[in-house]
Amino acid sequence: DDVELRDGDWRVELKDADEEILRAVEEAIKNGASEQELRELAERLIR
């Protein structure tokens, strides 16, 4: 699993992620995405 989400800690570690993925995830976090939404976003972007 390349995506690590810690309970109560919104730092997201994406291994080997490019800047576009990181920006998309950071934007989702700023917009108040839930953990499930972040997982789905990350899975779509990593593929």
Score class of each variant (00 low, 15 high):
24 A>M: 15
25 V>S: 00
34 S>E: 02
24 A>Y: 08
31 N>I: 04
34 S>W: 01
22 L>H: 09
37 E>I: 03
43 E>I: 09
37 E>D: 05
9 D>V: 06
1 D>R: 09
22 L>Q: 08
15 K>Q: 05
40 E>R: 04
17 A>R: 04
12 V>A: 12
33 A>Y: 14
1 D>I: 10
17 A>H: 09
1 D>P: 12
20 E>T: 11
9 D>E: 04
46 I>L: 13
44 R>G: 08
44 R>Y: 10
27 E>M: 11
35 E>C: 04
1 D>H: 13
14 L>Q: 01
16 D>L: 11
39 R>N: 03
43 E>L: 13
12 V>T: 12
17 A>P: 04
9 D>I: 10
1 D>G: 11
20 E>S: 12
42 A>S: 05
20 E>F: 13
40 E>K: 04
21 I>R: 01
38 L>E: 00
9 D>F: 09
22 L>A: 05
40 E>T: 05
38 L>M: 04
31 N>A: 06
34 S>D: 07
6 R>P: 06
38 L>G: 04
27 E>A: 05
25 V>M: 13
36 Q>W: 12
16 D>R: 06
14 L>S: 01
27 E>L: 13
47 R>T: 15
26 E>R: 12
36 Q>K: 10
43 E>K: 10
46 I>G: 03
3 V>D: 12
31 N>R: 10
31 N>M: 13
13 E>G: 12
7 D>Y: 07
23 R>E: 04
33 A>D: 01
24 A>G: 01
17 A>M: 15
12 V>D: 12
28 A>K: 01
9 D>H: 09
24 A>N: 03
41 L>E: 01
8 G>F: 15
15 K>F: 09
16 D>E: 06
29 I>Q: 13
19 E>S: 06
39 R>A: 06
47 R>I: 12
43 E>W: 07
1 D>V: 10
5 L>C: 13
12 V>K: 10
6 R>I: 10
30 K>S: 09
37 E>V: 04
42 A>G: 01
15 K>N: 07
43 E>V: 08
39 R>S: 04
47 R>G: 15
6 R>V: 10
9 D>Y: 08
21 I>E: 01
2 D>F: 11
23 R>L: 11
6 R>H: 06
21 I>V: 10
13 E>I: 15
10 W>N: 02
23 R>G: 02
37 E>K: 03
12 V>H: 11
21 I>N: 01
34 S>R: 01
2 D>M: 12
2 D>S: 13
39 R>G: 02
8 G>C: 03
23 R>D: 03
36 Q>S: 11
47 R>P: 09
20 E>A: 13
23 R>N: 08
27 E>Y: 03
19 E>K: 08
6 R>N: 14
46 I>K: 07
29 I>C: 14
44 R>T: 06
35 E>T: 06
27 E>S: 06
24 A>V: 14
41 L>W: 02
29 I>E: 15
11 R>D: 04
33 A>F: 12
40 E>Q: 09
40 E>S: 05
25 V>E: 00
3 V>L: 07
3 V>Y: 14
33 A>K: 05
32 G>K: 02
13 E>Y: 15
17 A>C: 03
45 L>P: 01
28 A>G: 02
40 E>V: 05
12 V>M: 10
37 E>A: 02
45 L>M: 04
4 E>G: 12
